[in-house]
Structure formats: C-alpha cells, structure tokens
Design a protein around this nucleic acid. Structure first.
Lengths: 152, 152
DNA sequence: CAATCTATGTCAGAATACTGACATGGGTCA
DNA sequence: TGACCCATGTCAGTATTCTGACATAGATTG
C-alpha cells in the first residue's frame, strides 16, 4: 500500500529531512536512556546543569526545548529524589539557581557516555569538514527561522 | 544567571544543534498553522495523504513520526469531520487506505502555502549547493542512526 | 496443512507536555 | 517616585502522545 519509497515531494524537503533526522536521534537516545530510567528531557536537564551550574528553571526549559511549567514538574521530582538542589530563596529576582548533587552527577555519567556513543554513531561516515559544514548549515537555518519571530 | 551565550559543549554538539533546528522549525510551523486551526501532526497527515493517496493509518503514523495509536485518534477525528474517508472494509489485510475528501484538500491548500513559506524562510541565505549538501548530510545521519537498530 | 511470525486497527489507561492564570521581583522611563 | 513592562516560579486543568493489550489478516516455514 502506498508504494513506499516512491518519494514524491517529502524526500526532497529539507524540512521533512530535518524532522526525520531529529526523530531518529530522539528514538536512538530514548533507546539507550530507557535502561537507565531516564527520559530525553530528564537527561537534557542534568546535562545542562553539569555544563552550566546555576541555571534557573526557565533557562533549563529553554535549553531543553520545553515550557518552564514542564521543566518545573521535572525539577521538583529531581529535587525530591536528591539529584538536584535549589536554594529556598532566590539570591536575586525570583530565579532559583539549580545545581547537581553528587548523586545527580553520578547518575549523569552513564547517560552522558551512552548519548555520546549515539552521537558518534550518527556522525560515523562524516569527515570533520562535513561535520563543521553541517553545523554551519544548521545554524543558518536556526537563525533564519528566528529572525522573523522578532519582527513582530 | 548562567551567563547565556557562553557555549560550553552544547553549542559544538551536532545532536543539540539538530534538535534546536528541528524545534525552531516546529515552532515556526505551529505559528502559521495555529490560525488555520491545525497542528503539525494534523498538517503532516493531510500532506502525506495529498502526496500519497491511499496510505494506511500505520503508514501515516510512520510518516508523521508518531505512533499508530496517536495517528488513529487523529484520523478518526478527521474522518468524523469530513476531511478524510476510509472504506468500511479493508480491500486487503487489515489496512484501510485513507483518502482526502474535497473538503480535506481545500483545507490543506492554505496550510501547504503557509508551511512552504516557512521552509523558504528557513532556506533563505543558503545556496542551492548548500541545500543539497545539507540534504546529503542529514540523510547520512539518518542512515547511520538506523543502521544499528536493525542489528538487534 | 498447521504453527508461527509479522503487521495492522483499535480500545483503555498512564505519562508527558502544554495553555491559562496568578503573584512577585526587577528594570525602564516619563 | 510611580506606573508600566517583562521575566520568573508555581498551581491547576487540558490536550496530546505514548505504552500495554487484544483480536485479526496475511506471509512464512516446518
């Protein structure tokens, strides 16, 4: 049915290809994170905190591409389970800087290794030049998409 | 807080960049589809049917990167509202070939134009050569990620 | 031919993310 | 200074998607 493989227009669409690649990456990440009892958003939050300690809930949300409400639910769970700590009062404004606990750092280790392996697998067959080409092209697309949002 | 812009490692990760680009595209599509009362999955389903009439529920699900259960919910709503038709009985197997109604085709028109405009905006600033480069690189990543799934 | 395997459609419940709303802290500016 | 605007944290309800499960149709295989 639907003679699959007969690309009509979707195969030539960079937008569709982008979604396909992103989906393949997400599926691959879920696959390796599931045995560790971790979702992609869960991992993203921990990785962000490892690389930029003190990020606030809203900043983590933007970094993980979810709403701050969703991230808040996750952060509260992570705090309750001892992976993350936040001060009771904000040092400035209302933003509460979050930090990984030793336990959080420990739980992140295996996940980071697993995700790095996935990324390496994705990059297999690409030269360093091609990788930086891809990086530049993706950044161009991101910039173009963002530029007209501001023009409100 | 978190001195944004100080890329530590995420900015150099192609995986993160891929997710960022895909997210920017999704947000931009939601923006133009919302006035039309259409979600991205909703649009994807209609566009797939326009380009490949007769696709089954499961095939549409794979094409839109959701589960067949999710697509089934959507398809039932689309059928109820007269955008899509499916035969009462499967001509072969259990797969029910879906087709757009004239109403479905009509509702897709504006959406297609809007989405095409978004994609053109995304591609602004890229030469044709760069676009085919991007296409090739994305396909390489997709292939690499899929290849080891089969090795189960 | 019978058993097994794979793919499909569908129902039900759980998990996840989102929209809406409110109060608060801080910066802007007239 | 006071009014306004923006960002943040958080609560509540809604929506969407996913996981689990079951029955069925066709293909495969012994």
């Amino acid at each position: 049915m639907g003679q699959n493989g007969a690309g009509v227009n979707l195969e030539t669409s960079l937008g569709y290809l982008l979604k396909e690649a992103s989906n393949a990456l997400r599926v691959a990440m879920e696959e390796v994170l599931r045995p560790l009892g971790m979702s992609v958003t869960h991992y993203s939050c921990l990785e962000l905190l490892a690389q930029r300690p003190g990020l606030s809930n809203s900043e983590l949300a933007r970094g993980a591409f979810v709403t701050r409400q969703s991230m808040n639910v996750l952060l509260q769970a992570l705090e309750r389970d001892g992976y993350v700590t936040r001060p009771a009062e904000a040092p400035i404004g209302k933003a509460l800087p979050a930090r990984l606990t030793p336990r959080g750092r420990r739980s992140l280790e295996k996940a980071t290794a697993a995700v790095r392996a996935v990324e390496l697998r994705m990059l297999a067959g690409m030269t360093e030049t091609q990788q930086s080409d891809a990086s530049r092209l993706l950044k161009s697309m991101i910039d173009s998409l963002h530029s007209s949002d501001e023009a409100t």
